[in-house]
Amino acid sequence: MSKKRLQTLGDVRRYLAGLLNRFEAKEIDEVHLKAAAYVANILTGTIKDSELEERIQRLEEQLKNEGNNGKYRAAS
């Protein structure tokens, strides 16, 4: 089996679909399917958290830049 880079939710979705297809074709057993699906679920959460963290950082930077340009003033 080739190594897969699971970096996006789409990657994980395709990986899980492939696993299910392999399970239905009796190429992998239920134990392997469950273990891989469990890890993929954890990875899904990690990807979502990372994407959210990046979005927050961009928003914070945007607010900081707007504040420096006089467009945004924090309440005092």
Rank of each mutant, 00 (worst) to 15 (best):
K3I: 12
Q7S: 06
R73C: 08
E53R: 15
A17T: 12
E61V: 07
K64I: 06
N69M: 08
L6K: 00
R14G: 00
N21L: 14
A36H: 04
D29S: 08
S50L: 13
V31H: 08
G18Y: 03
V12S: 00
E61S: 12
L33I: 02
V39I: 15
L52P: 00
L33F: 10
A36I: 05
L16G: 00
G10F: 01
Y38R: 14
A25Y: 03
T46V: 15
I42C: 06
Y15K: 02
V12T: 01
S50F: 10
A25T: 09
A17V: 09
Y38L: 10
R58G: 00
E61Y: 06
R5T: 06
M1D: 05
R14E: 10
R22E: 14
Q7I: 06
Q57H: 09
V31N: 04
E60L: 11
G45C: 02
K34L: 11
T8D: 02
R5K: 12
A37I: 01
G45L: 06
N41T: 09
A75R: 12
R58L: 15
G10A: 10
Q57I: 11
Q62S: 08
E51C: 03
Q57K: 15
Q62N: 06
K26L: 13
A35H: 10
Q7T: 09
T44S: 11
E24F: 06
A35R: 09
E27V: 01
M1Q: 06
A37C: 07
A75E: 05
R14K: 10
L59T: 05
G67F: 02
L19V: 04
I42D: 07
E51D: 13
G67A: 15
S2M: 08
E66N: 10
E66C: 00
A17P: 05
M1Y: 07
R14P: 01
R14I: 00
L59H: 03
R73H: 09
K26A: 14
A36L: 08
T44L: 09
K26N: 14
L6G: 02
L16R: 10
Y38S: 14
Q57E: 14
K34A: 14
Q62D: 09
L33Q: 09
V12C: 00
E24I: 07
T44V: 13
D29W: 01
R13E: 11
R55P: 02
E30D: 14
R5H: 05
K3Y: 07
V39T: 15
R5Y: 05
A25E: 14
L19W: 06
R58K: 13
K34E: 15
I56V: 14
L63N: 11
L19K: 03
T46D: 15
A37P: 00
N69S: 11
Q62V: 05
E51I: 09
V12W: 00
